[in-house]
Design a protein around this nucleic acid. Sequence first.
DNA 1: TATGAATGAGCCTTCATTCAT
DNA 2: CATGAATGAAGGCTCATTCAT
Lengths: 201, 201, 201, 201
Amino acid sequence: MASGPTRPRLRARYERRRDGVARAAAAVFAQRGYDQTSVQELTQAMGLAAGGLYHYFESKEQLLIHICDQLVEPLLVRANELLARVEQPEQQLRELVHLWVAHVVEHRDHMLVFDQERHVVERGINWRRVRSSRKQFERLLEQTLARVEQTRAEPGWDRRVALSALLGMVNYTAQWYRARGRLAPEQIADGYVELIIGQPG
Amino acid sequence: MASGPTRPRLRARYERRRDGVARAAAAVFAQRGYDQTSVQELTQAMGLAAGGLYHYFESKEQLLIHICDQLVEPLLVRANELLARVEQPEQQLRELVHLWVAHVVEHRDHMLVFDQERHVVERGINWRRVRSSRKQFERLLEQTLARVEQTRAEPGWDRRVALSALLGMVNYTAQWYRARGRLAPEQIADGYVELIIGQPG
Amino acid sequence: MASGPTRPRLRARYERRRDGVARAAAAVFAQRGYDQTSVQELTQAMGLAAGGLYHYFESKEQLLIHICDQLVEPLLVRANELLARVEQPEQQLRELVHLWVAHVVEHRDHMLVFDQERHVVERGINWRRVRSSRKQFERLLEQTLARVEQTRAEPGWDRRVALSALLGMVNYTAQWYRARGRLAPEQIADGYVELIIGQPG
Amino acid sequence: MASGPTRPRLRARYERRRDGVARAAAAVFAQRGYDQTSVQELTQAMGLAAGGLYHYFESKEQLLIHICDQLVEPLLVRANELLARVEQPEQQLRELVHLWVAHVVEHRDHMLVFDQERHVVERGINWRRVRSSRKQFERLLEQTLARVEQTRAEPGWDRRVALSALLGMVNYTAQWYRARGRLAPEQIADGYVELIIGQPG
DNA sequence: TATGAATGAGCCTTCATTCAT
DNA sequence: CATGAATGAAGGCTCATTCAT
């Protein structure tokens, strides 16, 4: 079974371990690919025996879903908070991109896994939740771009193109960002924002 | 064996069939994922029996490599031609992006497969050729951006960021472009160029 | 796949092999039990490699179903023929029991497997066909007993009890009959008939 | 360990619980099959956690053996008592069948399990005790039939056939008897006796 | 006594690949 | 060239059993 204990104390320990398992799995999946990683390799990398995974997840796929959920959900939550807090459209966009880049960089492994498994995410029967969260985030982004447009005489972009460009560039960050590299996440985010809304005043 | 006939006439027919097989495979892989597609499903989708694939490719992985090669190599060749033909840096960039977007859109399936299998491309032992081609294309792109910078007083971007943004947005196009959609490839390419080098004219 | 070829020549060979596989499996199942027999052991006993079973049956359970079908269906068919051919009720019963005992003895292995897996047969979702055939055979038997009753002043039995007793004793034959034993199937059948309808005139 | 406490008071409680566990298990096994029932399902159905079973039985197989022992042993004991008490052969047979049918009906679940696992009972290394008890019971039965024969001018049956028929019909009762049905165990037993020894005086 | 996390052997099944036809 | 039966290694997953708590 993969639902775990109900008594609070044990429950907490269980959930901590469960998240640890998911994080470790994300790292392995990111490196070797979901399908190419056997459950044996996986559990070995987490210090568990073969069958031990199934105390925490009911299947290898549910583990994958959990990883992607951990990526998309919190970003959506924090994006909503941000938009409620900030008023000025350009400032919203700027902070949104900063938040997003930071998230992508911090959850690099999750992001790489998510990208890789696009075809399952899009078509899989158990993936509705993940699909919905991603969709909602994209909608927030598009609405923000729309508000930015309204502050200008002429937009200077096609909104669909700008939105997709932003999605492409930010998500791709996970593939080239290096923690010890020259560029900090904030600089990268600033660079992206400037491409979209032009030079900062 | 998968090297095929040597007499010119038969050779041509063989290669045509081989490319057809690869194209059909790309479509299936793009939809279902490489690992999740069995050779049985694959060959069935191409009107062949299970063993038939092995007349054209010596393994499932070689087929995958061929698909990625078909994507990257021709783009590199045509990019080189373009840069030899056009002189003005901004014009080079503009035409490069147009060429590239057109290529991505035309080889959507190949592109989706290529993206999906990033971890194999990066680490696989038989993938040196593909890695090298991709690397060369990125270098062309970076050099072009460098030349554009030199025509300006101040670049207005960090070159690494601009390069990665471009890679991210153009490649991502494969994931959202629809042939019957509102935007033609040329419009999309124009949009991208404007984001990078600022408003035209 | 487990549907096999369609061309007549190959089809015939396929079906012959398929039946051979089922027969061999019945023998092993009868001896060791269905659940206790691994597919490895099974295929080894049939001169196939592990995966080879799946050319003929889509799962271990479908193999089991086939075995039980091979037992019940033909008996039902031949019982119907017999009842159409013979007129006198007591003679019908006598010949029915003879046919049945012969069938049980000839398909000893199938019978032992069938008995053993009663709980699956009764509740399994894929077992409707088998359940229905068995039900029909029992109905034929009951109707025959009813006709025998009508030839008598008083039945001398409760029909439900007689029917169940008959089912119990004949099916149990599979568990003790020995081909080289003292009793021939015909003698056994005669013994059963006498118990049911009393001493032969 | 599964031997339990030694102090009389605790011992009694332990054994009561142990028998309760076995009875509950018999019900589940009868329904789903021994092999198809996991220890998890089993213990859950008894309000225990997974490991709890092992306080009462040292293995799943020992539990199964206990169930079968609970079925066969008491019947043997009571059959012996009966034969010591009753003198007239036909009366012995009649009462034996009554006792036996009542036992089968009362321990329906145990009986179904026992039947199902025939191949283990016959060949299993830990099953000697059960095999021996069953063998002894069959011998009692056969001897009783022999004594009945001696009271008659001509037996009217082959003894082996009569014995097997009796075994088949009585044991099969577990499969069709319904507590709320039309027939009481005594009526069923009478029916069987009549089939064997002919109409009652 | 009881728990339930953990183990690890073994299960059924899939699948890339081979080869006789 | 093409077929498809056959292989056998490897996969994900289950489950009887153990043991620290």
